[in-house]
Amino acid sequence: MSWKTWLKSKPKHVRLGFYGEVNAGKTTLANVMGIDWAGQEVGKVSEIPHETREIAKLEKVNFNVDGTNIDLTLIDMPGIATTVDPKSFVNYGLSAGEAMQRAKEATRGIVEAIKYLEQVDVALVVLDSTKTPFDQVNFTILGNLEHQKKPFIIVPNKIDCPESDVKTVQEAFGDYEVVPISALKKEGIDKLYDSIAKLAKKVK
């Protein structure tokens, strides 16, 4: 086999970043993808905010949809926030010391996630569809992805919840690719895979 043929047969490598606000369900979604395509989870899920405080990666994920074979690296990012208050963790039953430790790790995680933005090839911006989509963090992330010309998909999550309002999200981001899902119930996941495959094909 010539090196040119070998190069062509090699699956494209794409770094897929999971971005979004805190507790939007990024890790739940990353775990669904990890299990589906590599048989393992990416990170731990918790209802306590800032459970993901370090970037978690799952490499060599063999993603194959409609004949598109991609070597994915799933990169689960800490949720981005403008504030980190240890007091908010105490409400979830953490001791004062645990809350302080979590807050310190969370601030470091946010900085890491911001710095890593340049290194992702495709981003999934995960929103909590039960909340207003007009959170400034969402706009800030999307504006930066646009500025850096990174392809992205807006993923309103938690559509299985009665309070979910996908229509508002679709109206707010109507000019962009919006794929509603429930990572928990695995609804809309196949459509998301199709969209990821389409975007990944465009990555150089």
């Binding site: 981005i80 926030a81 403008t82 504030t83 980190v84 208050d85 240890p86 007091k87 302080m100 807050a103 310190k104 601030t107 470091r108 946010i110 900085v111 911001i114 710095k115 933005l117 400034q136 963090v137 706009f139 800030t140 992330i141 999307l142 504006g143 930066n144 646009e146 500025h147």
Partner: peptide
């Protein structure tokens, strides 16, 4: 948006968890 992201990053560095969160 780039200035906002930089501001968020620098805010994280300034948080002291007591007086400024």
């Amino acid at each position: 948006p780039e200035e906002e992201l930089y501001l968020i990053e620098k805010t994280m560095n300034k948080i002291d968890y007591r007086n400024f969160v």
